[in-house]
């Protein structure tokens, strides 16, 4: 997936939980991504977050640290 699309999707999730307080929102984002994202998408997101991708919302970047690390297939 293109980094732009992945970033967009992750940020959409963050927006959906925007009203929640920081910690709850970060947990909700991480849980949602753990529950619905295939490992290669999660790996790519973690990679983007670790590279400090500027377009990722701060909460997604934060959540990326809590996302389940996928094992290599």
């Amino acid at each position: 997936m293109t980094p732009e699309k992945l970033t967009y999707m992750a940020n959409q999730i963050a927006t959906a939980f925007a009203r929640q307080p920081e910690d709850a929102a970060v947990t909700a984002i991480a849980d949602h991504i753990d529950a619905f994202w295939d490992p290669r998408m999660r790996a790519q997101l973690i990679e983007l977050a670790e590279a400090g991708a500027p377009d990722l919302s701060p909460r997604v970047a934060h959540a990326a640290r809590r996302i389940r690390r996928p094992e290599a297939a």
Binding site: M1, T2, K5, A35, F36, W37, D38, P39, R40, M41, P70
Partner: peptide
């Protein structure tokens, strides 16, 4: 125990 790809994700992964 890993969620799989959804249809749009499959197509993205295919292009990738």
């Amino acid at each position: 125990d890993e969620p799989g790809l959804r249809i749009p994700n499959m197509l993205d992964a295919a292009v990738h």
